[in-house]
Design a binder for these strands. Structure first.
Lengths: 191, 191
DNA sequence: CCTATCTTAGAATAATCGTTCCAAGATGGA
DNA sequence: TCCATCTTGGAACGATTATTCTAAGATAGG
């Protein structure tokens, strides 16, 4: 039997994900990927393909490993509006402090870059959007809300708000302002 | 007296602005700038400096020539909520149809890219944000609103919503969904 | 221990990057 | 018309880009 890989592909993919997340794909060279991962170019290309495929795989990993658990928690939370408040609190916390502060959201970043022209990337963006929308809708449907409220439109609104938070947090937005804006969106929903 | 320029610098800057707006700075080469403008590299560098300064100048032009008039109109509109409805209608129209459809907003795009790390770029982003916030606040302050509403927080919310619209429009978001989301944000403001 | 088969390190590739340079061309006051 | 002074076209620059290739190293069944 032949030789086996001398590294864990998913651990490497996580490093690559963080690199592309923080700095984008267009302004990150393969040399930097090599430097960060410690892999040789041969191993990199043999395992993941070219730079484009590497980026798509890293983006997919972000959606599955980072976004998915958060969306699932939101969808499964039965508390109603507090579930949504919690979602935004955690979002703002993650975007403004800690390890990934001021990195924004990798998917939101992909929207604005030239990578969004790639059909394969676009499909990942749409998947992300649809999942967030669905989770938000589920959480909303379990809340006691002001009568006559349009659930679909409100879910759309809160989803767009999340994208706005992601974007502005990258430019150093004040977390307390972000929290106040979220409160302004959620307060009028109450009966 | 020496020779004079054989071109109109602002007309060229507009072409460059559109190039960077649509494709971003990291994935647009100086060769493409040369190709689109018809200028020689000498003239380009003598007039605008290097690529970075060219991008910043193009971004500044966007903020002054594209955003500013729209924000001014919003701030000067005395109709109250209809002024804000109008702002978002025009925004969604511009982002989803016509000449610049699916380009997003150059400033929003800059948020997500690596260019947002540049302090000079950051200052332009902050200026844009502050102007939009101020205009939104002015328009809100002239509206008949539900009592007890937090004007500052609501202005923050609507500003973030605009960024969300900008982002999602680039990925082909359905304009009618965007309009419904905006309506969901504005409806509960009414008394 | 041998060897078929894979992985690895790193040199080499051609293309493109942003920038500079120089000679030729254009300008308008003297 | 002459000329000092700027602009212009385009070649040239070294650095960096993504990708490929080759030779050496590692592996595990026979």
């Amino acid at each position: 039997m032949p030789d086996v890989k001398h590294f864990d592909p998913d651990a490497v993919l996580e490093q690559v994900e963080q690199l592309f997340w923080q700095r984008g794909t267009a302004s990150t060279g393969v040399s930097e990927v090599v430097a960060v991962t410690g892999l040789s170019r041969s191993s990199l290309y043999a395992t993941f393909g070219g730079k484009r495929e590497l980026y798509v795989k890293a983006l997919r990993r972000y959606v599955e490993q980072r976004s998915r658990p958060v969306f699932d928690r939101l969808a499964a939370d039965d508390r109603g509006l507090p579930a949504i408040v919690d979602f935004f609190d955690r979002l703002i916390q993650a975007r403004c402090t800690g390890e990934h502060a001021r990195w924004g959201c990798m998917v939101s970043n992909a929207h604005a870059g030239s990578e969004s022209g790639d059909p394969e990337v676009r499909r990942v963006l749409d998947l992300h959007q649809e999942r967030l929308l669905t989770a938000m809708h589920a959480a909303l449907s379990k809340a006691r809300l002001r009568p006559g409220l349009d659930l679909d439109a409100t879910a759309d609104l809160l989803t767009l708000l999340a994208y706005g938070v992601n974007l502005r947090s990258r430019a150093g937005a004040d977390p307390s302002h972000l929290r106040a804006a979220v409160a302004a969106a959620l307060d009028p929903l109450r009966p």
